[in-house]
């Protein structure tokens, strides 16, 4: 399984490049055009990232996260999750950038092969930034009433949190 994992990205790239060589005229300039689009994507999400990350940074140093985290710590024991990942559980639905930054720090502190590091990785890899995605997509088409979107999405996030502890426990 893990060897397969190492092969994945290179194989995808090779398949794309191989097909491109036969079927795409001027493949490299097409690639550069797409990469330029990526530049624009980053530029277009930068303002909201700056606004959201500043708010989240403020939230983190204010101690409010500690209060909330300590409130849900007993939940960590019930779900057999490492206590260190609980701030991530709260942060994950709010900000992708913020939770990647927190994942970065958790891996630095506990190591990539620790239980904490693995659970945090599975959590981040298996869910999206619920509030951000919802706001971005519905905001872009001017929808005001989102009905049951958040209930369904947050239920999925809860399932994700519970399962990340279970799968890491079973597979490692």
């Amino acid at each position: 399984m893990s060897v397969l994992g190492a092969y994945c990205a290179p194989v995808v790239i090779c398949v794309i490049v191989l097909c491109g060589m036969f079927r795409v005229q001027g493949m490299f300039s097409v690639f550069c055009g797409g990469a330029k689009e990526g530049l624009r994507t980053v530029a277009s999400i930068a303002p909201s990232l700056i606004g959201l990350i500043t708010a989240v940074e403020m939230f983190k140093v204010s101690g409010a996260l500690d209060v909330l985290t300590s409130a849900i710590l007993p939940v960590a024991n019930i779900l057999h999750l490492p206590q260190e990942v609980m701030p991530l559980v709260l942060l994950r639905p709010i900000t992708g950038g913020g939770s990647i930054a927190m994942l970065d720090r958790l891996l630095d502190q506990y190591g990539a092969n620790s239980m904490t590091g693995r659970v945090a990785c599975v959590m981040c890899g298996s869910s999206e930034t619920t509030f951000y995605t919802t706001a971005l997509y519905f905001g872009s088409v001017g929808v005001k009433k989102i009905r049951h979107t958040l209930i369904a999405a947050l239920a999925a996030d809860l399932v994700c949190t519970i399962l990340s502890g279970i799968t890491v426990g079973l597979l490692f």
Partner: peptide
């Protein structure tokens, strides 16, 4: 991120991520 922090095989986490997601 995992390779940055010295995971021997950064992608060995994938089956867990697949099942969970």
């Amino acid at each position: 991120l995992r390779s940055k922090y010295g995971a021997a095989n950064p992608m060995d986490i994938m089956p867990a991520i697949w099942i969970t997601s």
